[in-house]
Nucleic acid binder design. Structure first.
Lengths: 256, 256
DNA sequence: GTATCGCCTTGACCCAGATCAACCCCATTC
DNA sequence: GAATGGGGTTGATCTGGGTCAAGGCGATAC
């Protein structure tokens, strides 16, 4: 079961992204300018990068997990599987998202790369020591975990009470918001992004079948809520409209 | 909207429970024996108790929340509501569960007492200062938040992929496990507990209608998985059977 | 007593989304 | 360029759970 890839040499194509480590939990979502330098000094010796190809499993549920880290680029998913094969995705990991659970020895979910990804990892022991001795780090992790908890609870509403069409719109809306933030693009009139998930992965996230996903995506296209360029490139002419379709009661601060 | 009850004098009937504060995040789920005394000394001056009657709202989503705390006795719920009235419960708060979000100013969900409850509260400012200066506290909170995140993700599987019958069995199984732990009762053959939720509340938790909840509860009774004494008292002759009905792939350490 | 109210149950019917099945599209590979 | 295979679409049909409606039951009020 356990399938740990050897730590790969960085490809030259990654060299641009890695020196700044956009997804590093310490640096990117900065804890504290004052102490950041010291923290990094401590961490550099236990920090390393790993990359995975689309479709590869990063770690299986139940396996020992001797690192924590975050996504630098690409998209990964957290999924749970029942004995009879029913699957539910419980998290979508985009760049800057944290992976791993300080204080826990095993992985609780399957982590799978859905695109090629690069992760910034820290060996778990020294990272935990840092957490134990540096209040700001534990606070920062608490902050990030609370964000994840909010996201999980928002998703409970999606899973429990929304229609298939609203579910699709909710997913597109979330991916659009995150992608756009990353691209620093202005918007309000027209957002374009790549959908990094297959129809099946979308179905697993939304608690639907892939056929229903396909039908509802087609319906949203037919109704002009989205436009498609190929299967994966999505254009949203009016984010407000999309968020209405998602049944959101606010724009989440996305629009002016 | 904002509805804060005056802090009530403790009833004599509570006096038994409160001095030890079973639900206190610092004490009950102890952080560290060594420093506990100091922490408590700091906290006592900002710690107080509040009680609410069944049906009362503790705080509304969006309201300012100037305290954090935990449930000492009784049961409360976290719910989210859409504009059109669809409701999804996103958390069930049992004794020892934490309420509130350090570092956040507003409540994210409606918190409602479903039975009479007693909470142990801390004023938020001083609590946050303690968190900022005491690594163990932040770590303990991180630990508790990770537990909640796991629970939320487990619930995503329930909401997204389980049938109505499995959903009911999952809920009964969770409440049974928590109640029994609290009672220190032995088990393996026969568990009895009170279901602190109306059929409607169960429906809101499970993403079902109250009619479906009623039908499936009846079906589980008819099939001998549970026995009912009145509407709320539940007897489970065989926890293993119940967990099979819930579709759980493990007993969660409950048996054997 | 009986009226009222909140909560629950049960039945009849309906529909959103699942299931089953055929087919399309397009990138690889030989 | 034919074969293969992994996504994706679309249609036909089925069904689990929703919706609507009619009581039941026990507690409190008069």
């Amino acid at each position: 079961m356990t399938q740990i890839n050897p730590i790969p040499a960085l490809k030259s194509s990654m060299a641009v992204a890695t020196p700044d480590c956009a997804g590093c939990p310490i640096r990117h979502r900065a804890v504290c300018a004052k102490c950041e330098a010291d923290e990094l000094a401590q961490l550099e010796e236990v920090k390393y990068y790993r990359s995975f190809e689309a479709g590869q499993t990063v770690i299986w549920s139940g396996d020992r997990m001797d690192f924590v880290g975050s996504i630098v680029s690409g998209v990964a998913t957290l999924t749970q599987t029942m004995e009879d094969g029913r699957r539910q995705m419980v998290g979508l990991l985009l760049p800057s998202d944290f992976v791993g659970r300080p204080g826990r020895s095993g992985a609780a979910y399957d982590v799978t790369a859905t695109t090629e990804i690069v992760m910034c990892c820290f060996r778990k022991k020294p990272f935990e020591e840092l957490v134990a001795t540096t209040p700001h780090i534990a606070q920062r992790l608490l902050e990030m975990t609370l964000d994840e908890l909010d996201a999980a609870r928002e998703w409970m509403l999606v899973l429990g009470r929304k229609t298939a069409r609203e579910k699709i719109a909710s997913l597109l809306s979330i991916v659009a918001r995150r992608s756009v933030l990353a691209d620093q693009a202005s918007l309000k009139d027209g957002v374009v992004f790549d959908l990094p998930l297959t129809r099946e992965a979308m179905a697993d996230y939304l608690g639907l079948t892939l056929e229903t996903v396909s039908r509802q995506v087609s319906a949203l296209r037919r109704d002009g809520v989205i436009q498609l360029d190929g299967k994966r490139k999505v254009m949203v002419p009016d984010m407000g409209r999309l968020m209405e379709e998602a049944g959101d009661d606010s724009d989440g601060g996305f629009l002016g």
